[in-house]
Amino acid sequence: MQSIPYQAPASVSEAVALLGSDAEARVLAGGTDLLVQVRGGVRKPSAWIDVKRIPDLLGVSVEGDSIRIGAATPAAVIFEHPELQRLVPGVAEATDLIGSTQIQGRATLGGNLCNASPAADTTPALIAVGAQCIVAGSGGEREIAVEAFATGPGQTALAQGELLVAVRIPKPAARTADAYLRLIPRTEMDIAVVGAGVALTLGDDGTCTQARVAIGAVAPTALLLEEAAAALVGSRVDDDALARVAAAATAAARPIDDKRGTIAYRRKVVGVLAKRAAAIAANRAQER
């Protein structure tokens, strides 16, 4: 660990070149997952490629019809962005739930996505708002929907030599809002036992016209739930619709038993959180 070489490229192309030439090199963003894994002997990278000196990977900007979050932007910087908080409060909430205040000063959005934990807090929130990953490789940039980015625990759709540069979130339409909730045994500092993100749009009469529901920590990757969304669309997000959202989330969950929760518990509670998040999103949309 101590002797692993360290490099801090200044540009995306430089980083991509370094990654392309060394399959075992690892991108170091916040390091809050990676350093723990390397110290624990889970990973043995050949080199650190620190991407926090690449301007393209840093900061939050609202441009045209989308919000761009640099992949190496720490969670705290994202959460503190007033316009982002206003536009996608659920995504902001998710960044505010990652670890402690200290961890939020380090942990990045890109790191949360690339670590590809099934329990990553930002993933369901980003899926709900239809976010896209902007990926750079030697041949240029491509976009991958967040729901397709993680392909399994610890695995992503990134090819060797590719770098996650940013996440692009479409600006929400009128009367559209999102919310993210997770369940942990304590109030802070835990990995999500289950998580649920919901974004929805209300028509002028209060009927839901569009919805996206995503759940985390209940399958090898976060899941986008068509049925749960269908339960909301056309409804007034009333108790009956919320009960169907809960049932759909519970039915879709494929959790495991582990030290953080049981199958039975995760299945039940993911439904509870999905309906609660939907209710919060609907309230927020009402107020817009």
């Binding site: 360290y6 801090a8 620190d50 926090k52 402690s100 200290q102 000063g105």
Partner: peptide
Amino acid sequence: CSVMLDGRLVPSCMVLAPE
């Protein structure tokens, strides 16, 4: 191990020294 890094609170165990 909390320290400030460029004005932001971070855990110094999660920062590499060369950074």
